[in-house]
Simulated scan of single mutants.
Amino acid sequence: MNKRYKITRLDDAGQPTLTLEECQAFFATQPDFVYMDSFGAAQDGVQMKISGHFFMWQVEGGQVPFRFYEGEIYVAITHPVVLDRAIHIAECLEALYIEG
């Protein structure tokens, strides 16, 4: 099972402070990311669509969703290369990278 991590920046009260606009501006500078307002997946003939704010990383012929939700960015770590990229993004956003 994949671990889920989040990229977050907290204020003094422990509340997330990343904004959608800030994340959209950052990811727009990343040539290997595409913004999508939904994410779809299919397994065993069942299709699912989740609405939201997704920054899809185009890597090694596939896509890895980084989801913005309530001031934080969530990603499932499926491979060490995803971990490295998530840590880099956290550093660029001056944010924390934690399991959760």
Rank of each mutant, 00 (worst) to 15 (best):
I87V: 14
Y69F: 10
V81Q: 15
Q43P: 00
F66M: 03
D32H: 09
F27Y: 08
G52T: 02
D84A: 07
V59W: 13
R85K: 14
V34T: 11
V59H: 14
D11Y: 10
S51W: 05
F55E: 07
P16S: 10
V46E: 11
T78K: 15
I73D: 02
G45W: 06
H79K: 13
E72Y: 01
D12P: 06
H53T: 08
E21D: 15
D12A: 14
P16V: 02
T29L: 08
F39E: 01
I87K: 14
G52L: 08
F55W: 12
A86V: 11
A76F: 13
T29F: 06
Q15S: 07
F33S: 09
T29M: 00
Q63F: 05
T17R: 11
F33Y: 10
E21I: 12
S38H: 10
G14D: 04
L20T: 12
G40A: 01
F33G: 02
M56A: 01
W57P: 03
D32R: 10
F26D: 04
D44I: 00
Q15C: 01
Q30I: 09
T17L: 05
A28M: 02
F54W: 00
R67H: 12
V59D: 15
G52E: 05
F55A: 05
T29G: 02
L10F: 10
E60R: 15
P65D: 07
Q30A: 03
G61A: 11
A25C: 06
I50Y: 08
V46T: 09
A25Q: 11
E60F: 14
E72P: 07
